[in-house]
Design a protein around this nucleic acid. Structure first.
Length: 867
RNA sequence: GGGCGUUUAGCUCAAUUGGUAGAGCGUCUCCCUUACAAGGAGAGGGUUGGGGGUUCGAGUCCCUCAACGCCCACCA
């Protein structure tokens, strides 16, 4: 016993214990899942963090929730696999490495593709362990022996297989379309990688002279520099102002090129001048118009965002940056007196998600995935419930996006990523799509790489061994069970995994998608490095302890998946609780005399029955809430039971009369319940408990289950009544400013039987010296009283009582009771209520009224006696 | 423009199918009672954003208005 107590120090140094315990788990390989196990499987894949990234609060929340679920399922008897890994994060990682190069005044082009990719690999490899290492400080019980990388060999295999298959099915195609081009990243990006920001700009009205006769047509544009790429001016055919001009020809000012005036319904009559210049090469809508009217495309801005040096563009603008060119164009238009008007205009401008550079819509040749046929099954499987979103509302969001899905531009003009498995004959240019180069002497591979999300989209499959669907992991752990992530990547990631999983394995890659909220700062602002409002989880963990951080984050997860407003101090909540658990456990372990005490249900005190009943209820709640992803409510149950029932009452009572078997049984079961959320603390205490254990670690022990035998409804209720009585004594003490040191002598009338049984509890908890159990009331004005159920607690206070105050106190209670009674009687007097409300509710109401009436009567008598 | 969410105690948030609103923090009073002052005991605090409706009964369901936030589409 000495060993036990000495190793439990009064100061709970979380980090020390957490590191020690994590090492214990890792050394024993407790996180490694067995694909040969005959237990039912539970599996999850981590949303792979960016390989160059560092742990942020979002990861901390996401990781905590995944770990809670994994640990819970493991204890529930599942073969639980939580598979970790990293994402190669194409653009983001390439940007980081390019920045490194820029420090030496170099670009990737200076060192060449091969060297650059090698350098990026080195960078990635040196950072890979960092982010997963940070997850470890969270207590993550993931299986690092299975850690994967979206650019590793296995993922590469999966990517090639999927690409070639989709191509052969006609679901991947290459074509010239207008795409979102990022002039800084020098690559196309997909629609969802483009974010729109409202910017103040101008709307210029420019006069385009008609070719024949006098007159001109005035168009409105926000981008005058693109006018050299115009191929038409469009008006709405129903617009009487311009009706007669359709079919005529006008002339682009400054360059004199002739273009037709066309009619198209797309044009909004009420915007600007009602006449719109059409530039198919630099505007997605114009591109559509161009296709409809079989117009050519004239590209006037290049991939660098500079004006092309071609005849279509005035010579002095050649090679000029697009914004410079805009300024100069406007000046030129003014000089030529064709600029009619300038208005201020707020409009949305597309930005690159990664670098915030303004997107240039650009005509270029790219690879696309035809999404509509793929989306069908993905919609179906969510609609029929094969895949469930928690909370359900995200389902609608997902379905709306899927039902309006557009083709996915998957090629990126980067060097870091999965190079597209298409090969071109050096002489003929003939293209072969194949997993391998058909003839390296004569064929060269497509230089583009795939969108990062293409490989992340295969993550649940590829990490389990796909394309080898016979591999042991695939057979045991695919499909995965649950996916946990934030709503910000439902489209980027979740939707694509569902599509690809269904297309290539025929089953959904997971059956539940649990979407949690985003972490925000205390003012509700999104956390970002540039705003400087981030909270570093690694620092918080060092400061408060990992279990404390986990507990706090869990407690803030609402069922509706609301965003979480977080400040560092919030972790005090978890820290205080961890400290409470530590100290209470320390106390219990210190006071054990008989280590072999076994729970004996036939030998229980009323308090024992009460705490077992409470525990049992908590077990039920925790199980149910974990099954339903109500993590916040799990923590509420756990907190409430331990602090308000076990510590405040049961442990206190154990100081006068203890049942060691119950004391340890409850602690043992409780620690198991708490383990998924506070793994280290519970493991440490459990290891020190002198009880018989079925397993060498709490993380491998059985999770408590609701047990009908531990229901003690009646005794439990009586015990609660006794607690009420104790509270009322304390209340009297406080109301009359009686020092805590002063012991009281009290009288009890009513349920004498019960109170005799628990008189020691009353004495201890209410600081009572002596209790008189009386049959008949004595008229004693010098006392304060409390009515609890059918009993009266009388506290004689000779010389201490302020009768006025006692009357006031009692009147206040009376008023409360009266208010309640009034509203209840109102209800009972309502025939419709009695008729239509459920019987139980009516009965309950009736009973309550009777209760109130007795209490009221007692209090009224009391007041009468006093005055 | 379309969709979604939020509005409850001073602050942060709960409240399972409608049955007279709860917790943590903060506030006030008292207490270093030998597990824990990161603690203990007690107290105060709310016309549940406004208005209307359904119902015996509404924080909860319906309509409407307002404020804030998010997502999608996009204005040349």
């Amino acid at each position: 016993m000495q060993d036990t107590t000495e190793s439990l120090s009064t100061t709970y140094s979380a980090r020390e214990i957490e590191k020690e315990i994590y090492k214990f788990w890792e050394d024993n390989k407790f996180f490694v899942a067995d694909n040969k196990s005959n237990k039912p499987s539970f599996s999850m894949v981590i949303p792979p963090p960016n390989v160059t990234g560092i742990l942020h609060m979002g990861h901390a929340l996401d990781g905590t929730l995944q770990d809670i679920l994994t640990r819970y399922k493991r204890m529930k008897g599942y073969e639980a696999l939580w598979l970790p890994g990293c994402d190669h994060a194409g653009i983001a990682t390439q940007n980081v490495v390019e920045k490194e190069l820029a420090k030496e005044n170099k670009t990737r082009h200076d060192i060449g593709r091969e060297e650059f990719v090698k350098m990026t690999w080195e960078w990635a490899n040196s950072h890979k362990s960092r982010i997963l290492g940070q997850f470890k400080t969270l207590g993550a019980s993931f299986d690092l022996s299975r850690a994967r990388f979206t650019l590793d060999e296995g993922c590469s295999k999966a990517v090639k297989k999927v690409f070639v298959d989709l191509y052969n099915k006609g679901l991947i195609y290459k074509g010239k379309y207008i795409v979102n081009w990022c002039p800084r990243c020098q690559s196309a990006i997909s629609d969802i990688e483009t974010e729109y920001e409202t910017e103040k700009g101008h709307l210029w009205e420019i006069s385009y002279p008609l070719k024949e006769g006098l007159g001109a047509i005035v168009i409105a544009t926000t981008r005058p520099e693109t006018m050299f790429g115009d191929v038409a001016v469009a008006v709405n055919p129903s617009d009487y102002k311009y009706k007669d001009l359709i079919g005529k020809t006008c002339v682009i000012p400054l360059v004199g090129r002739e273009i037709p005036i066309i009619g198209d319904d797309y044009v909004d009559k009420s915007f600007g001048t009602g006449a719109l210049k059409i530039t198919p090469a630099h505007d997605p809508n114009d591109f559509e118009v161009g296709v409809r009217h079989k117009l050519p495309s004239v590209k006037v801005i290049d991939e660098q965002g500079k004006m092309v040096a071609r005849g279509e563009v005035p010579k002095e603008l050649h090679g000029m940056d697009r914004y410079e060119a805009r300024k100069r164009t406007v000046e030129l238009l003014e000089e030529h007196q064709v600029l009619i008007k300038v208005d201020e205009l707020e409009h949305n401008v597309g930005k690159c998600q990664r670098c915030n550079t303004t997107i240039e819509p650009l005509l270029s040749e790219q690879w696309f995935v035809k999404m509509e046929p793929l989306a069908k099954a993905a919609i179906e499987k969510v609609k029929d419930g094969s895949i469930q979103f928690v909370p359900k509302r995200w389902e609608k969001n997902y379905l709306m996006w899927m039902e309006n899905i557009r083709d996915w531009c998957i090629s990126r003009q980067l060097w870091w990523g999965h190079q597209i498995p298409a090969y071109y004959h050096k002489q003929t240019g003939e293209m072969v799509v194949s997993e391998t180069n058909p003839d390296p002497n004569n064929y060269v591979q497509d230089t583009d790489v795939l969108d990062t999300w293409f490989s992340s989209g295969l993550w649940p499959m590829s990490t389990m061994g796909f394309p080898d669907t016979n591999s042991p992991d695939f057979k045991k752990f695919y499909p995965t069970t649950t996916l946990i992530t934030g709503f910000d990547i439902i489209f980027f990631w979740v939707a694509r995994m569902i599509t690809m999983g269904l297309e290539f394995t025929g089953v959904p890659p997971f059956s539940t998608v649990y979407i949690h909220g985003l972490i925000r700062d205390e003012f509700g602002q999104k956390m970002s490095k540039s705003k400087g409002n981030t909270i570093d989880p690694v620092l918080s963990i060092e400061k408060y302890g990992c279990d404390a951080v986990r507990f706090t984050l869990s407690s803030m997860c609402t069922y509706g998946g609301q965003d979480i407003k977080l400040s560092d101090e919030k972790f005090e909540f978890g820290r205080n609780f961890a400290n409470k658990v530590w100290n209470a456990s320390r106390f219990v372990l210190m006071n054990l005399e008989n280590k072999d005490a076994r729970l004996d249900l036939s030998n229980l005190s009323i308090a024992d029955r009460w705490i077992l009943d409470k525990l049992n209820k908590t077990v039920k709640e925790v199980n149910e809430n974990l099954e339903n992803y109500r993590i916040g409510e799990v923590t509420t149950s756990l907190y409430d039971f331990f602090w308000n029932s076990y510590c405040d009452w049961y442990v206190e009572l154990s100081k006068i009369e203890k049942n060691e078997a119950v004391l340890t049984y409850v602690l043992d079961m409780y620690l198991r319940l708490l383990h998924p959320i506070m793994p280290h603390l519970t493991e440490k205490i459990w290891q020190l408990m002198p009880i018989k254990k079925e397993k060498s670690a709490i993380m491998l022990s059985e999770f408590p289950e609701y047990d009908e035998k531990l229901n003690f409804k009646e005794d439990s209720k009586s015990m609660e009544t006794v607690f009420e009585a104790i509270k009322s004594i304390r209340n009297i003490r406080s109301s009359f400013n009686i020092s805590p040191a002063q012991k009281l002598n009290i009288k009890i009338k009513g349920e004498i039987e019960l109170y005799k049984k628990v008189q020691n509890y009353l004495k201890r908890m209410g600081k009572v010296e002596n209790i008189d159990f009386i049959e008949n009331e004595e008229n004693d004005k010098q006392s304060a009283s409390a009515v609890v159920d059918n009993s009266k607690i009388i506290v004689p206070l000779k010389g201490l009582i302020d009768i006025e105050q006692e009357i006031k106190r009692q009147n206040k209670k009376l008023e409360k009771l009266n208010n309640e009674k009034n509203s209840l009687s109102l209800r009972m007097n309502n025939e419709k209520f009695v008729k239509s409300a459920p019987e139980a509710v009516v009965k309950q109401t009736k009973e309550r009224i009777t209760e109130i009436e007795t209490e009221t009567k007692t209090i009224e008598d009391l007041i009468k006696n006093l005055s």
